[in-house]
């Protein structure tokens, strides 16, 4: 790609299908940070709520909620519908900094929780590394997208984050959920909504070009 493609986030669902595995794009807009511990809490909250468990732990009626309902019912601290999660646990910000070092963490640890979150409307994820087949299937089913940011480029990526505010799970420290405004945040589409996987094709393409 020669010219720089900037995409505003969050984006319309229709936009997802235009993103193709291998595209190098820049995101501008709102992202939410969430990694291991936050994922576990979100996941457990949904599962408990939908199993009909009351606050007292008694079994009630099974229900399913949409992402919006989960938020409105106070089950989740944010409406994940059409939003993007950045798998990130930053270093602390110094005086005058928006955020500390802020690169992606390994995505596969979020695999267990991801299909459920995608079914509730999450549209995109930014991380690094391979995903499970279950996640790839869920990406195709719900028309979502998985981006990679460059692992280990936390200082560089922190420069693209213009605002950052903890909005939930403050007690988790670096693992809290942050709402972040980003500008020209560089990512590569790894798994697109058709299930094409750059981690497989890129290495094959490189090797066959030799």
């Amino acid at each position: 790609m020669d010219s720089k493609t900037v995409i505003n986030v969050p984006f319309e669902r229709a936009q997802v299908e235009k993103l193709k595995s291998g595209d190098y794009v820049y995101l501008t807009g709102t992202l939410y940070s969430a990694r291991d511990a936050a994922h576990k809490r979100l996941y457990d909250s949904i599962v408990n709520a939908e199993s009909g468990m009351t606050m007292g732990g008694e079994a009630g009626n099974k229900t399913t909620f949409s992402g919006k309902e989960l938020y409105e019912e106070g089950i989740l601290p944010l409406d994940i519908t059409d939003n993007i999660f950045y798998y990130l646990g930053p270093t602390p910000a110094k005086e005058g900094q928006v955020i500390g070092s802020a690169g992606p963490t390994t995505s596969s640890r979020m695999d267990k929780y991801t299909p459920l979150l995608l079914s509730k409307g999450l549209v995109g994820m930014i991380g690094k590394g391979k995903r499970s087949q279950a996640v790839i299937d869920a990406i195709v089913e719900h028309k979502a997208v998985y981006f990679a940011a460059v692992g280990g480029a936390g200082a560089l990526l922190s420069k693209c984050i213009k605002k950052s505010e903890v909005i939930a799970y403050d007690d988790l420290g670096t693992e809290a959920i942050r709402k972040m405004e980003v500008e020209d945040f560089p990512v590569i589409v790894v798994i697109d909504s058709e299930g094409n996987n750059l981690y497989e094709t890129a290495v094959e393409d490189y090797n066959s070009s030799k």
């Binding site: 280990g152 936390g154 200082a155």
Partner: peptide, 19 residues
């Protein structure tokens, strides 16, 4: 990008990686 990252880390005193 990794080279740029190392340079920023050094100049601005930001950890090279968040981990």
């Amino acid at each position: 990008q990794l080279i740029e990252n190392m340079d920023i880390a050094k100049e601005d005193g930001i950890p090279i990686c968040q981990d």
